[in-house]
């Protein structure tokens, strides 16, 4: 584990360096509080254990502790103050500044190592908590089966992007897709194969969009894709490319390769003014329904009421079955 030593006394610093290197720590050492703060707040690979001398030039140990604790965007750092100030008031002030522990100088080497092990235990516990929190956060926001955004999150993301488009006079493209004849896949091959199809379809959709677009599971075999700040002229084309990525090669399943197709409804928000999200979803759903009605494996564009019609791409119906 990487550990920071901050001490302006070269003798004390060298003694600590050698002791900690011998104890298999990766040691970084600095001679003042400003350098200590810089090291502890490095965006990447900052030391998470630190021995900070109380009295140092530039910033003293307690000031470094306070500054580190004010930053909330980093993993926890376990900070030990080194001090020869042993009054109760000093100890309280040191701990109140954000230090986790303190050691009175001159320190006993075994005690130093034991306190560092204590710090490592705390950091390991923190790592496990962060990991658990991230896992819970992922589960709360993603669909279990496909790992796409779940319905609640994709709806929130859609609302946010629509609001942004309005603010910035841009355009968001909504794409609602549904796997064709998915019930037949489940009925014929079983739900496990159905799950394999859902996962692969999800993977292909994710690979077909930009890293900053959103793909979510909207319902059983329905998916909502939100293309941010998308050129309206390309919205339909992008949707149809996604459709093609699904049917251009069979999906490998335990039941053998299956040819799967999807139908899509597309809506370009700029064509619809400031309509509410619910209304846009109803319209894109209607476009999807029109795609299904016209033979499936195709893409239909939702047009506003003044020129109400669903427009298929010329090539989009060519390979429908």
């Amino acid at each position: 584990m990487k550990i920071l030593i901050a001490d302006d006394d070269p003798l004390s610093r060298r003694l600590l360096e050698k002791t900690l290197l011998r104890a298999a720590y990766e040691v970084v050492s600095v001679a003042d509080g400003r350098q200590a703060l810089t090291s502890l707040t490095e965006p990447e690979d900052a030391p998470r254990l630190a021995l900070l001398d109380w009295m140092m030039p530039e910033l003293d140990g307690p000031s470094v502790c306070r500054a580190v604790r004010q930053r909330h965007n980093q993993g926890y750092a376990y900070l030990i103050l080194l001090t020869s100030r042993e009054s109760k008031e000093d100890v309280v002030a040191g701990l109140e500044s954000g230090a986790d522990d303190y050691l009175i100088k001159p320190f006993n080497i075994d005690e130093l190592k034991a306190r560092l092990r204590c710090g490592e235990r705390i950091l390991e516990l923190e790592d496990r908590l962060v990991e658990a929190r991230e896992e819970m956060r992922f589960k709360a926001t993603h669909d279990d089966l496909t790992s796409l955004w779940n319905r609640g999150v994709i709806m929130d993301l859609l609302a946010r992007e629509l609001a942004r488009s309005q603010r910035e006079n841009g355009s968001t493209v909504l794409i609602l897709g549904d796997i064709d004849h998915f019930k037949a896949v489940n009925d014929t091959h079983g739900h496990l194969v159905g799950d394999q199809v859902l996962r692969e379809v999800s993977r292909r959709m994710l690979h077909s969009v930009r890293s900053y677009d959103f793909v979510g599971r909207y319902g059983g075999e329905e998916f909502l894709i939100v293309l941010n700040n998308c050129n309206p002229d390309y919205g339909f084309k992008r949707a149809d490319e996604i459709r093609t990525s699904i049917n251009d090669r069979p999906i490998q399943t335990d039941a053998g390769p299956l040819r799967i197709t999807m139908s899509f409804g597309v809506l370009v928000s700029r064509d619809w003014g400031s309509r509410p999200t619910d209304e846009l979803l109803r319209e894109v759903d209607a476009a999807l329904y029109a795609a299904k009605a016209s033979g499936r494996n195709c893409t239909m564009l939702a047009k506003p009421p003044q020129d109400r019609e669903f427009v298929p791409a010329e090539h989009s119906v060519a390979d429908s079955h």
């Binding site: 006394d9 004390s12 003694l15 020869s84 001159p106």
Partner: peptide, 20 residues
């Protein structure tokens, strides 16, 4: 106070109790 404090720490590390 500052300089003697530093001396105190250094001499303590050297196990020089009287000077510390």
């Amino acid at each position: 106070a500052k300089l003697s404090h530093t001396f105190k720490g250094t001499l303590g590390n050297l196990a020089a109790a009287q000077a510390m």
